[in-house]
Design a binder for these strands. Structure first.
Lengths: 233, 233
DNA sequence: CGCTAATTTGAGTGACTTCAAGCACAGTGG
DNA sequence: CCACTGTGCTTGAAGTCACTCAAATTAGCG
């Protein structure tokens, strides 16, 4: 982690990255820019640990952050990834609780840090902003509940295909149809909730069926419609 | 469903049942009482359907409501139960989306209906209330994520024990240690995410181990500590 | 420094095991 | 009397273990 002298302005970023902060007015955006901090993080760094105290939350300016919980036998369960414009850790800030997941850098990142008090001030001053924050949380909750249903009812094969589509929705493809997020097989298994070996075998199956191509860790999604069918999605 | 002439006042209920509305002031509570409706529902009635429009949300005055999603093969996945003082359906109201689960009456209920506009008015007028609403949603989100981790990593036996403990936390025991919510084996299986037969077998196992007693659908929790151990909870 | 050697890490495969789902059917109690 | 509970049996999906292979990192050393 490295502190920055140059701090990117929020008023620009908010609109470019479609962040929650676009619901703030100019004054509030200035306040935000003034009160926040900004740091560089390298891949593998931990931003905050599950169970630790947090006294503020983060907004991703550049990079990707992996959020995961640790199960009782040490296995990580990936909850979600945060990319440009998304905020992480605000749940613990709001509830005043310990962090309920670990945040680890997946791709070198630039994160802005916003102190707890600033968040509360903004919520109190701007009802529109707080409604949008509520909507955001509700959306995440809806996704979480949908995933519970899937993980409880679908086969590993279906879930894997679905996870690929969820990643597609979040990160998109490049011009060659490569998924714009690169994960190890183990990380994939920690989203799907299965063994690494199963992911390896099932990816091969999807390749056999011409739905994807495998180039090391980079995955090319050839047939989105076909994947949807496999995933019942 | 049956409309009521007598409508319970919110200012009393809010405090007695520790509902989210205790963060409203007297005027706002009066407004709420004035603008809400109130209906009786019988066991098995559907309050709203997954995928349907909702133009308001509900607060449980008496009874228990079961919230569940329907998987792609028609299996229900129970998301949570709402009891006295809890609100349901506000997520769809906030996001303006279709309901993402079905609400069905588990025990005869008295539900108060609050129109969308009233909710938004209260959020706009009362920052404290909206913060508490945010906290509530965050808490639910945290629970959902924890459950994802469990369902992905734990065995059915562990999950069943855990579900019993979750139900204990939500509904408590009577003086004879009977769980204060009565579910069919199928409903239990639709929380745990398993087959009905597995629940039956595993409940028997827990009985063998003297952790619970089975009296038809009523379950007596004999050894909470033991259950925690089984559940790794 | 640069160039192997040594070690680690992740991907992939096969053999085996096991947990839990599914099916069929019997019992029972609301 | 029908929906729910309970049991035995079978099967299959997926987990576990043990191992190989390739690539990437790090260490060692002239």
């Amino acid at each position: 982690m490295k502190s920055l002298e140059y701090i990117p302005a929020c008023n620009q970023c908010a609109y470019e990255n479609n962040s929650i902060f676009r619901f703030l007015n100019d004054d509030q955006l200035s306040l935000l820019s003034y009160e926040k901090g900004c740091n560089l993080y390298k891949k593998g760094n931990v931003v905050y640990h599950e169970g630790g105290r947090v006294n503020g939350f983060y907004c991703v300016n550049i990079g990707i952050v992996k959020l995961y919980k640790t199960g009782y036998e040490g296995r990580e369960q990936i909850i979600r990834f945060a990319k440009q414009g998304e905020i992480i850790g605000f749940r613990s800030v709001l509830s005043g609780d310990f962090a309920c997941h670990t945040a680890r850098i997946l791709e070198d990142s630039l994160l802005c840090f916003i102190p707890t008090e600033t968040l509360f001030e903004l919520i109190r001053k701007n009802a529109e902003f707080s409604i949008e924050l509520l909507k955001l949380t509700c959306r995440e909750l809806g996704e979480a509940n949908a995933f519970i249903t899937d993980i409880a009812q679908k086969t590993v094969r279906e879930r894997l295909a679905e996870v690929l589509l969820i990643l597609y929705n979040g990160f998109g493809l490049d011009e060659e149809k490569f998924l714009q997020i690169v994960l190890t097989r183990e990380e994939l298994s920690n989203i799907v909730g299965t063994a690494t070996e199963s992911v390896i075998r099932l990816l091969s199956e999807l390749k056999e069926d011409k739905l994807i191509e495998i180039h090391g860790r980079r995955l090319k999604l050839l047939d989105l419609r076909g994947l949807k069918k496999v995933a019942n999605y």
